[in-house]
Amino acid sequence: MTTPTKPSDLRATLRGGLPDRYLTPDDIAEMFEVPLETVYQWRRKRTGPPGFRIGKYVRYDPADVRAYVTQCKSSDQEAA
Rank of each mutant, 00 (worst) to 15 (best):
D61Y: 06
K73I: 06
I54P: 15
T3V: 11
F52G: 04
G17T: 11
T47P: 03
T47N: 06
L23T: 01
D9R: 07
T47S: 11
G16I: 05
T24Q: 07
S75I: 14
K56S: 02
R21P: 06
Q41S: 09
W42K: 08
M31I: 07
T70E: 00
P49N: 02
D61T: 10
D26T: 08
R11D: 05
T2F: 06
K45T: 02
E30G: 01
E33R: 13
D64I: 10
M1S: 14
Y40A: 10
A79H: 12
P62Q: 07
I54C: 09
D61V: 09
V65D: 00
D9L: 08
D20C: 14
K73G: 01
T2Q: 14
G55F: 00
E78A: 08
R44Y: 06
A80T: 08
A12Q: 07
T47V: 04
T38S: 14
W42P: 07
K56D: 02
E33P: 09
T70C: 04
P4H: 07
E33Y: 14
A67K: 07
V58Q: 11
A12W: 06
R11H: 05
A29G: 02
K56N: 04
G55T: 00
F52N: 05
E30H: 10
V58H: 12
T3Q: 11
F32H: 02
S8Y: 15
V58L: 14
G48Y: 01
Y22R: 10
R43Q: 11
I28D: 03
D9K: 10
V39T: 10
I54H: 14
I28W: 00
T3I: 13
A12L: 09
R21M: 03
P4R: 09
I28E: 04
R21W: 00
E78N: 15
M1K: 09
V65R: 01
R11G: 06
A79F: 09
V39D: 05
K45R: 10
F52D: 13
R44A: 13
P35M: 03
G16E: 05
A67H: 11
A12R: 12
G48P: 08
A67M: 12
L36V: 07
G51D: 06
P35N: 13
L10Q: 08
P7E: 05
D27R: 03
F32Q: 06
T5Q: 14
V65C: 01
E78H: 06
E37L: 03
R11Q: 08
P49G: 07
K56A: 03
T70V: 11
D20M: 13
G51E: 04
Y40K: 04
D9N: 10
S74A: 14
Y22H: 12
G55K: 01
